[in-house]
Design a protein around this nucleic acid. Structure first.
Lengths: 120, 120
DNA sequence: CAGAATCCAAGAAGATACTG
DNA sequence: CAGTATCTTCTTGGATTCTG
């Protein structure tokens, strides 16, 4: 058997792009409809302009976001999800929802772990 | 840090731990039942021993994995999911499934993007 | 077997400044 | 408004070696 496994990028790489900290925030924020750069900057809390740009490019390149430039002054650029990103979005919200439900428990688990092991 | 705001860690941080490239692989591999270190090393393709250890500690600290040491010779250590990780697992498999369905499309999207923009 | 310790390279990310 | 460019810092991750 010709194990020509990687005709396409490995799953782990896809997941790495799609499930990154910033990617999830961006995709979730863009899911409500077309969203502008500055709106995204506010929506994704903690992201820097640079990181936003880089992640937008990555997601656009992967075919998850569509970038629409309106040739006006001042410029207006909108980002929206492609169909495959929209499908992804439901899984992402499940994840976000889970994180929200359990972040208290996780914080407590960390405290217990650190307390037991020995924080110096 | 004498932080007053963070009663619990922000969602983005939780997601960052849980949805990392390695974390997903580890959690999915451990979902079948208790799994040993070396088995994980084989199951999570591409991971190094070091990264595996670091990620196992992180997940254990977050209360997602339970580490069981059997005091035998040679040593035997098993990892299994906690209930909250088990709940997470269903969302993760959804994600993995999505990634598998679309990785071909993503690879093509990249090629198109690179081809159009100008790969120098 | 299941790690821990150390060193080092590469990439991610922040700060800041500039532009069509 | 929506970026780009540059510089520096911090973190991630690989390779290797050692141990109970």
């Amino acid at each position: 058997m010709s194990t020509q496994v990687s005709e396409a990028c490995p799953i782990s790489e896809v997941l790495d792009h799609v499930a990154g900290k910033w990617s999830i925030g961006i995709l979730v924020a863009a899911a409500h409809g077309p969203i502008r750069f500055t709106e995204l900057e506010r929506a994704v809390s903690g992201i820097s302009r640079r990181m936003l740009t880089l992640n937008l490019r990555k997601l656009e390149r992967d075919g998850l976001l569509v970038r629409t430039v309106h040739p006006t002054v001042p410029p207006k650029v909108e980002y929206s999800l492609t169909p495959m990103a929209r499908e992804l979005h439901s899984y992402l919200t499940g994840l976000v929802d889970w994180a929200d439900r359990y972040r208290g428990a996780i914080t407590r688990a960390r405290a217990a772990y650190d307390g037991a092991a020995g924080p110096v």
